[in-house]
Design a protein around this nucleic acid. Structure first.
Length: 696
DNA sequence: GCCGACAGATTTTTT
DNA sequence: ATCTGTCGGC
């Protein structure tokens, strides 16, 4: 085995060697944080301080977990790495709830209720409470309830502090929603953290058991943990307090789902005498990129100040690309990507990052047009597609024949003549007669023989699968289920039939990698799109800034740097959220290794109409010395029409986003006006702030 | 219970 | 511009 301490810098080595007690690693972007985490785990094992079974490592995404396991594997061998507990918070929650279901509020075969299903339940609750979805959308209510759950607020407590009419509606829905979850034997995403937390808090013996089992804990992306997650960690933490928290407050971008930067900022207060290590040497980006990113983030106030540095002295300037429309933006960026590929770079070295998923479409169309291989990450998740959810619902019924959500889903998809009313009758009858929903489907007292016959292929396929589930591979089971139940046939004469069948084929492919249905279902429920991105370096990746966290690319186009988008309009009047938007930009910028382009369009199509857009206020904070501007042809032409000889200094009627011409710097775009100070980006000259009260 | 036509929202980010 | 949910007629 390789020594875990070699090939690390001094700070990294310190972090890896700090094996006992609480350790805080404040790791800047690109500072080798994953390296530190993996080497630390390897070091714990290598020095025989801990056995692999005593380690628990929590990551933010499944992909990060997989990568970490692979890297630890390389250091300590596969056998040892396999024995570590390594996964996401939600994965950990599922594991605890399955193992300890006796102490938990649901069965061992519980259903994971994803956001869509959760919204469906809320809708149901609204209907029965006579709350019209007109005024308060179920989505809105769902997010309020989710926020309440992720700040550990009970239905009662929530009701007590209701402020708005919307909250009042949510307060009425909340308890009913919880009831519906229980009826469906389901946990929603929040429950997957909260339920284990309660379980551990209430059962000392169970808590002890895990504290003794996992004596070394580590957590990645600690800045993005929410209170229940933090509490869960602390309950799992035994008396030795062996917790290694790694994160970067500069990269905290999940406060909207209840994450608290305070967890990382207060770590040293929470654990007096902890070892704190700062990793600030960056191994990823060139110095212009780093300098620009540093300057952007330095404007924030609510943070620990640190500055990334690099030995890399050279590098191309950060480009600011000004274009006239979102279409022009897509086309300019595509040209840039094409140039990069023609210059010998792989498509996979390029990434297009944006604030909102809605922005992806223009790029998708343009990339397709130019035959550039690409992949859109996020948006409609593969596992959220209707046919995938239908197929999973069928499989689900083999594991849990009581899942009303699954039965409803598949009924809607393929059983003609049964609607919500009949389903309600089935549910009621099954409950009263203590039989499963599936059993009730073949009961004369519930369904007419005609309807029983409609269900017959499904029930038969389920029964068959039931008997062979144990000893046949999942791929075959899945195929038999989908064929036997008639679901596959039902996809034949439907819109986008081929695509759906292809997706099903892909699902069967994935299933083939599993041996038991429960773990397959579980993984699918917790799998995000980002986890799916293969590392094949053959296509341009397009994704949101959130999804880009933890990744890196040779070239990054960070698009839509406009007021209302980045910062997003919903964040503009709240200073704390504005800081988060800035961090989002910082996260995006620090993904770039070699070349970074920030683009903004002066008009953008929204809901079908074209609206004027001002450049992001953040652009004004870019350092002049490392920035270059490209007015992308059209904009330059526009500037020539609008040349004001010496008139730049007349601010009357000038607005942010306008293209102007300066006698010395030539064409440029105004990105900020503050009193008599005017900030522009000039082609070939970068960002300049000029004083309009001074004569030219 | 089903289907088509229309109205209305949608766009912040995700496990 | 597109998608989703609701409503009315069958």
């Amino acid at each position: 085995m390789q020594n875990a301490l070699t090939s690390l810098n001094e700070k990294q080595r310190e972090a890896v060697a700090a094996l006992h007690g609480p350790v805080l690693v404040l790791a800047g972007a690109g500072s080798g944080k994953t390296r530190v985490l993996t080497h630390r785990l390897a070091h714990l094992i290598g020095t025989k301080t801990a056995t692999p079974q005593q380690l628990l490592a929590v990551t933010f995404t499944n992909k990060a977990a997989a990568e970490m396991r692979a890297r630890v594997s390389a250091l300590v061998g596969e056998a040892a790495a396999r024995q570590m507990a390594l996964g996401t918070f939600h994965g950990l929650g599922v594991r605890l709830l399955r193992a300890q279901h006796k102490y938990a509020p649901r069965s061992a075969n519980f259903t994971i209720v994803d956001t869509t299903d959760s919204e469906r339940l809320i809708r149901e609750a609204c209907t029965s409470l006579n709350i019209s979805p007109q005024q308060v959308t179920p989505r809105n209510i769902r997010s309020m309830i989710s926020k309440a759950k992720s700040t550990q607020t009970s239905p009662e407590a929530f009701a007590a502090e209701v402020q708005s009419p919307i909250a009042e509606a949510a307060a009425r829905v909340y308890p009913l929603y919880e009831q519906l979850l229980a009826q469906n034997d389901g946990y929603d995403f929040d429950d997957l953290i909260i339920a284990p937390l309660q379980l551990l808090a209430e059962h000392e013996a169970v808590r002890r058991r895990y504290q003794q089992q996992w004596r070394w804990l580590s957590v990645d992306e600690y800045q993005d943990t929410n209170p229940p997650q933090d509490a869960l960690l602390k309950l799992l933490l035994g008396p030795e307090q062996n917790l290694c928290a790694v994160g970067d407050d500069y990269q905290a971008i999940y406060s909207w789902r209840g994450a608290q930067v305070d967890h990382i900022l207060q770590f040293e207060t929470q654990f007096p005498g902890c070892t704190t290590i700062y990793l600030t040497q960056n191994y990823r980006s060139t110095s212009p990129i780093l300098e620009a990113a540093n300057q952007i983030i330095a404007v924030n106030e609510d943070q620990k100040h640190k500055e990334l540095w690099t030995d890399e002295k050279t590098g191309e300037a950060v480009q600011v690309l000004a274009v006239t429309s979102d279409r022009a933006e897509a086309s300019s960026v595509c040209t840039g990507v094409q140039d990069a590929i023609e210059a010998g770079g792989a498509a996979g070295e390029c990434a297009i990052l944006y604030r909102t998923n809605a922005q992806s479409r223009a790029f998708e169309e343009e990339l397709m047009l130019h035959n550039i291989p690409y992949q859109i990450v996020g948006g409609i998740r593969f596992y959220d597609r209707a046919e995938i959810k239908d197929a999973m619902a069928i499989l689900h019924l083999t594991v849990n024949p009581n899942s009303a959500l699954a039965l409803e889903r598949i009924t809607k998809a393929m059983i003609v003549g049964v609607g919500l009313k009949t389903i309600a009758r089935i549910k009621l009858y099954a409950r009263e007669h203590k039989m499963s929903l599936i059993e009730a489907l073949s009961d004369d007292a519930v369904l007419t023989s005609r309807l029983q016959a409609s269900y017959a292929p499904l029930t038969r396929a389920l029964a068959e699968a039931q008997s062979q589930l144990k000893d046949s591979p999942m791929g075959a089971t899945m195929e038999q289920l989908l064929k036997g139940s008639g679901y596959l046939a039902s996809l034949k004469d439907v819109e986008r039939s081929e695509e759906r069948l292809e997706n099903i084929a892909e699902l069967i492919n994935v299933a083939a990698g599993y041996t038991d249905a429960a773990s397959f279902i579980e993984d699918v429920a917790l799998m995000s799109d980002i986890d799916q991105t293969t590392d094949a370096k053959d296509r341009v990746l397009c994704m949101t800034l959130h999804a880009a966290k933890g990744l890196e690319f040779e070239q990054v186009w960070l698009v839509g740097c406009e007021e209302g988008l980045l910062p997003h309009r919903n964040s503009i009047d709240r200073p704390a959220e504005l800081e988060e938007e800035r961090r989002l930009l910082y996260v995006g910028m620090t993904r770039a290794k070699r070349q970074l382009t920030l683009s903004h369009a002066s008009t953008r199509t929204l809901h079908g109409e074209s609206l004027p857009q001002a450049p992001s206020r953040f652009l004004a904070d870019l350092p002049e010395s490392v920035t270059q501007t490209d007015l992308a042809g059209e904009a330059t032409a526009a500037a020539l029409d609008d040349t004001i000889t010496g008139g730049l200094w007349d601010l009357e009627g000038r607005d942010v986003g306008e293209i102007v011409s300066h006698p010395q710097f030539g064409p440029g775009v105004i990105i900020q006006i503050s009193g008599s100070l005017i900030t522009c980006v000039f082609e070939g000259h970068g960002v300049k702030t000029l004083d309009a009260s001074m004569a030219a």
